[in-house]
Computed example of a mutant assay.
Amino acid sequence: MTPLATVSLVDVASYLPENRVPTSYFTQYAKTDRMAKNIMFRAPTWRHHVAADETAVDMAERAMAPLIERRGAAEVLGVDILLTHTQLPDLPVLGCGSELAKRMGMKPEWILDVHNGGCASFPYMIQLAQMIMSTTTAKSALIVAVQNAAGQGMTQTEVRKLAQATIPGDGCGVGLLLKSDEAPVLGVLARNYPEFAGDMTGEVEPARKYWEPGEGQWRIAFTEAKIMKVFARGNRLVPEVATALCDELGIKPSTVDTFVTNQPNRLFLRNWGDALELPAERHPDTFDECGNLFGAGIPITLDVENQAGRIKNGSFVLMSAFAHAGDFAAAAAVQWGAEPTL
Rank of each mutant, 00 (worst) to 15 (best):
L88H: 12
R71S: 08
D303Y: 02
F316R: 11
L249C: 07
H115P: 11
G326Q: 08
T157F: 15
L318Q: 06
S121D: 04
E305M: 06
P17N: 07
W272E: 07
A225E: 15
V185Y: 01
A329H: 07
E224H: 11
G118L: 09
S98P: 07
A56L: 11
I167D: 00
L278E: 01
N116Q: 13
L142Q: 05
M228C: 10
H283C: 14
M131E: 14
Q28C: 12
S24P: 13
A74M: 06
L342T: 13
V21N: 00
C246I: 07
Y210L: 14
V204A: 04
P299T: 00
P89C: 02
A30M: 14
A52S: 15
N306K: 06
T223F: 00
L293V: 01
V188K: 00
W211E: 06
P340A: 08
K312R: 11
G202K: 09
F222K: 02
L128P: 01
A225Q: 14
P44E: 05
M64A: 14
E99P: 03
F328M: 11
A60C: 12
A163D: 01
D11F: 09
P123H: 03
T155Q: 11
A30H: 12
W46C: 01
A5F: 09
A145Y: 01
K252W: 09
L178S: 04
A52P: 12
L91H: 12
D327M: 15
H115V: 11
L178A: 02
T137S: 14
E99H: 13
K37Q: 15
E99T: 14
V12W: 02
L318C: 01
V230F: 07
R282V: 10
R270Y: 11
V230G: 09
E215V: 09
